[in-house]
Design a protein around this nucleic acid. Structure first.
Lengths: 240, 240
DNA sequence: CGAGAGTTTGAAGCGCATCAATGTCTGTGG
DNA sequence: CCACAGACATTGATGCGCTTCAAACTCTCG
């Protein structure tokens, strides 16, 4: 049996060494000793209820956050009050990478369910990265990947229709759940349809219609927030 | 008189110390000595003609590039041959930040006019960043800003109509030219309308129509690739 | 000067947003 | 445990903004 990553709760101590997420989180590629050092950096591991904010747009930036369990959405808000969802964050993923330059959060992050995170004070993380080459490299890699992913998303928004966008998103979640040792074909989306739609630049009504179309085609089964992918191939063809 | 950055040609030597772009490029916030060290990293300063590629999608990643003079566009290509422009790069800006993780370029970069760049071998840059805390910080800041900018662009694509998109783009260029000591109200766009449109997720015909609308409103004057902003206020209001 | 790329303009159609109404879930207090 | 409120989801009808197609025009540069 393949190694499994327990996505909820097996990292109860303020250390990375015994955290089941260490293979997909920041410590990836660090050796034992360095993982220990990194773990000692963590000062707080706040737990948030559904709807609670990890930070708000405009807040001062002090730390990066690694999701330990649960999930978050990031979003910006316009003057007129509308929201734009910029991303969803699953266990092992880093939040606030966009806040480093201005030393201020350009958007908010809110828990989509009961969620706990590891707080990584950024100045200390920087100091540590200067001492541990592998950590520096990993930080740069994660940020580089975030840039590549965002640019991919730009392409999706610019050139794909509603069906293709949803197919791409479903496959993205599938892959991310799989990496975390969960099923890649059956999972629970913790966010509302309207959040998914907002992220994809589509109205909630359109989301609903596309979900229906996919079900009518027999490609997925969706009951509320539970989703089952019945034909990954069909979705992949749409996404191609 | 304000300091001016000569955007073309005043950095003829393989050093950052005497480069007029050092105040907006990677060396920002480094001291004299460190700037010298950084400059010694530069091995090549290739010059590209219009249409020549700096690198192609799928090429191995070895170095970051800083634009010295001229301009580039980044883009990805689909299986079916269509292009998606992911960015335009002006002097002082870094190219290939999206290639670090996979050690491979996820897109191509092509010169929009005669363009020269400084090649920064990445592994050496990493080593140097570990020695020079300010350099490490600057690298992380630049990448963080790129993430924030891309996410901003995502918002633009998801929620803005054609007029608003063009207004936002024109103001972005205006600001970037201004930072480089050039006029923020009169400048030459080195890329085709179709590239601008592609970047904004709009058809070339739509670009043409929006340009016309802006001119009819008296907000801009456009003759070919020369653009003059007549009412920054009107554009800013659209972009708000 | 000529050719090909880039631009403009008009006409038609389609995809998605919007509006409106109904239906369904979730969690809370009686 | 049930009833209810409020958020969320679904479905249909309509309209608008953009794409697409087509054709003429105009740069640019070899």
């Amino acid at each position: 049996m393949r190694d499994r990553v327990d996505p909820s709760g097996s990292c109860r101590t303020k250390t990375c060494s015994r955290c089941s997420l260490s293979r997909i989180c920041l410590p990836v590629s660090l050796d034992e000793a360095d993982i220990g050092t990194l773990g000692r950096l963590i000062e707080h591991q706040p737990t948030l209820r559904r709807g609670e904010a990890l930070f708000n747009e405009g807040d001062g930036f002090r730390a990066l956050y690694a999701v330990r369990a649960g999930s978050l959405k990031s979003f910006t808000t316009t003057a007129s009050g509308e929201q734009q969802v910029t991303g969803f964050h699953l266990p092992g993923e880093l939040v606030a990478l966009n806040a480093i330059n201005r030393w201020e959060h350009p958007g908010s992050a809110v828990a989509l369910e009961t969620t706990s995170v590891c707080e990584l004070p950024f100045e200390k993380l920087e100091d540590l990265a200067a001492d541990i080459p592998d950590l520096q490299r990993q930080l740069l890699r994660l940020m580089s990947q975030e840039i590549a992913d965002d640019q991919d998303m730009l392409f999706t928004m610019a050139r794909r229709n509603a069906d293709e966008r949803l197919a791409i998103l479903l496959l993205s979640f599938s892959e991310r759940f799989r990496q975390r040792g969960l099923s890649g074909t059956r999972f629970r989306l913790s966010m509302a349809r309207s959040d998914l739609g907002n992220y994809l630049g589509l109205a909630p009504e359109t989301m609903s219609r596309v979900f229906r179309r996919f079900q009518d085609q027999g490609w997925i089964r969706a009951e509320g927030r539970e989703v089952e992918l019945l034909s990954v191939e069909a979705l992949a063809e749409l996404a191609a």
